[in-house]
């Protein structure tokens, strides 16, 4: 088990290396630089800045310097928020993004699988159609439509919740972002659960339970666990989708998380911050996929590796 985890983590290293290299050179060959402001800086100031940030060295040297500092866990100084290092920015932004993302995922899992299971058990009933229509809507309506509508309804018309801002993580401020982020995931998970549950309910081992006269709660116990497998496999892509969604949500609700930093950083050519975000996201995806595989193996004895 421990060996397996170590092996998986080691096998992720080449991928990470490719990501780092690719994004490093992609950014540097692109036109524009971090100090190309609308009003050009004085040549002297520019030179100074470039020296401080080591942009005057040859590209390969910059690359090696960057790799070296990465090995020490240092993501370098931010080019835009010049008083901060990328590590410092992340130390503040990451917990915020994680909290919203994790809560949204949790909500989506619980609500989505409950709705999906309900629809599967009452297949072709009004409840089923309602859930499936809602799910299709949830998948098709983009996050950036849901967010302003929620703002309009709960923020302005009813004035129950604040329109945006983080306010040091007050729960009232996080309801709308979490809801926005969770809605499409609820929809997807509900559809997945319904489909797999319907298939499980038709399977031979459920027929066995019924032939043994086991009551509904046993049928549920067996079918939910089997139906959970595709949902668990979906969690990897779901985490990636949440990170994408966080870009929108954090922008609309003015939340100082990773997603918002990324867009700002990209627009401002903040090389190190962009790199840092890309690396961070890649690491998170790798870790999350590992966790998903472990959970899958825990649920399904057939893939256990002993």
């Amino acid at each position: 088990m421990a060996l397996y985890i170590v092996k998986r983590l080691l096998s992720a290293l080449p991928t990470l290396f490719i990501i780092i290299t690719l994004s490093f050179f992609l950014m540097r060959v692109a036109p524009g630089g971090p100090f190309d402001l609308e009003r050009p800086l004085e040549a002297k100031v520019m030179e100074n800045l470039k020296r401080v940030y080591q942009l005057d060295r040859p590209l390969w040297e910059q690359y090696l310097i960057y790799l070296k500092s990465l090995l020490h866990g240092d993501l370098g100084p931010s080019f835009y928020w010049r008083d901060f290092s990328v590590n410092e920015l992340f130390a503040r932004a990451l917990p915020i993004s994680m909290r919203i993302g994790a809560t949204a995922l949790g909500v989506a899992l619980v609500v989505g699988s409950l709705l999906g299971a309900l629809a599967a058990l009452r297949q072709n009933s009004a409840a089923d159609y309602a859930v499936m229509t809602g799910a299709t809507l949830g998948i098709t309506i983009p996050t950036f439509v849901v967010a302003p509508v929620l703002q309009l309804v709960f923020g302005l018309a009813l004035a129950w919740l604040p329109l945006g801002g983080w306010n040091d993580g007050a729960w009232r401020n996080s309801i709308l972002p979490i809801a926005t982020l969770a809605l499409p995931q609820i929809a997807i998970i509900a559809r997945l659960t319904r489909a797999s549950m319907i298939e499980v309910l038709r399977s031979h081992h459920i027929r066995t339970l019924r032939s043994q006269g086991l009551p509904l709660r046993y049928v549920l116990k067996h079918s939910l666990r089997a139906a959970a497998l595709p949902v668990v496999s979906y969690l990897g892509p779901a985490a990636a989708a949440l990170m994408t969604g966080s870009i929108v949500v954090e922008t609309i609700f003015a939340i100082p998380g990773i997603g918002r930093y990324f867009v700002d950083a990209a627009l401002n050519r903040d090389y190190t911050l962009v790199m840092g975000t890309v690396i961070l996201v890649a690491v998170l995806v790798v870790l999350f996929n590992l966790v998903v595989d472990l959970v899958y193996a825990w649920l399904d004895p057939r893939v256990r590796y002993e």
């Binding site: 081992h205 339970l209 032939s211 006269g213 086991l214 057939r302």
Partner: peptide, 23 residues
Amino acid sequence: DRVRGRRVTMIFQEPMTSLDPLF
């Protein structure tokens, strides 16, 4: 359910799939 499993039971042709693989 009070009759099945108690007074009458059934076994099937497909031994490979008739048991829940997860338990």
